[in-house]
Amino acid sequence: MTTSNMPAISFDRVSLSIANRKIIDDVSFEVSKGEFVCVVGPSGCGKTTLLRMVIGLAQPNDGEVRRFGQPVTGPVRDVAVVFQDYGRALLPWRTAAGNVALALEAAGTPKAERADTIASLLEKVGLRGHGDKYPGQLSGGMQQRVQIARCLAQQPGILLMDEPFGALDAMTRQTLQDEIAEIVAGTGTTVMFVTHDIDEAIYLGDRVVQLDANPGRVAEISDVSLARPRDQISSREAPEFLRLRHVLFAHIERSAHP
């Protein structure tokens, strides 16, 4: 493959209009292989639409979205997606283990290997002993863990996360932030993480892409030079964290009161 040194995701002058309304205007940025990039912006900035373009569920009117150098033509198993609405993204008639199994069945993993893989994935997301429960019997945080485990079962080159912790309470959110950072660190997976929470974006990202709304365009791209592994207390008190927070919030202030 000649794609090895290509960026995992590239937006190349991407624009999208729906019914003569510009949703996304001339967006360009790249996500390197193994990088954790957070896309942050107010609602209506098109951040979810950008993510859907990487999946191949939305197409730009202008410009091109590429994965590993290849133009996106449609969904592939190498691109896993953690949706915000875990309640709808899981199969309610399958247990936690069954939902993870779905990804393995789709990939054609031999039946004999599935049980071990499922057990270790559930263990990894902290759901040991919950494999035979239906989503309806699990808390929101646990359901989101199931979805994450199913995405990991895809062994994706690219992991897309669409405000995955937005519907969870603050404590659960912090726990899952640390878990996802730890899980991803070991795999070399490229992550594009969409959120409207600036603190979350800085805490998780190697870089933060800040978008403006109406139409969505790139406002600022910031490197986050916080050491890993990060810590919910000390990292959030680090001068670099506070500096970035200042920069990103200041931009929002400016665009709200020009």
């Binding site: 999946i55 969904p75 198993r77 691109v79 997606v81 609405d85 993204a89 779905l102 789709a106």
Partner: peptide
């Protein structure tokens, strides 16, 4: 659920499997 159709598309589930699963 439309979201589930997207999940099926992402996982590359065949039409036959989709009917059953």
């Amino acid at each position: 659920e439309p979201r589930l159709k997207e999940v099926a598309a992402i996982l590359g589930i065949s039409r036959f499997s989709f009917a059953f699963k």
